[in-house]
Amino acid sequence: MDAIIFLIFAAAAVIFGINVVLRTHPVSSALALIGVMASLAVIYLLLGAPFLAAVQVLVYAGAIMVLFLFVIMLLNAGSEKKSRGAWMARLAGVPLLVALLTILSFVIFRMYPRSVGVKFGSFAAGTVERVGSALFTTYLLPFEITSLLVLIAILGAVVLGYKELD
């Protein structure tokens, strides 16, 4: 059961991921990215992180991607034009990326052989209580600094948007 769910959603994530890269229209890419995020949320559930799965949908799919779609629609962005730079990047990039992926996979398979497995339900620390208490005790300082970062981000967005208005 675990393996079937994992395979279905891993395949979905990869297919959506390919769509993110290959679709020329930004709206299609954005929708594919939402698909990736939703599939990953299911995979988080398999890894015993229900809280993060919900937050993944809430923050990524529900807030960030809505913002992306909003901007795409606001700017009425059309399909991407072909350009010379892109062609050169593709020529140099594809071998490099394939090499990167091969090395990564090789290292992963060497470090974690088949015997190291993941069984659904054997680790259930991803509850709100556990994540929350870690967040507010061990990681209190990073948490507070993140709130500062968010504040700065809000100010930055307001300043940039304000200039744009007048």
Partner: peptide, 13 residues
């Protein structure tokens, strides 16, 4: 056990 966050997540979609 994350019921409320689940509802919020779905409604945000």
């Amino acid at each position: 056990n994350v019921g409320v966050v689940f509802v919020l997540a779905i409604s945000s979609l």
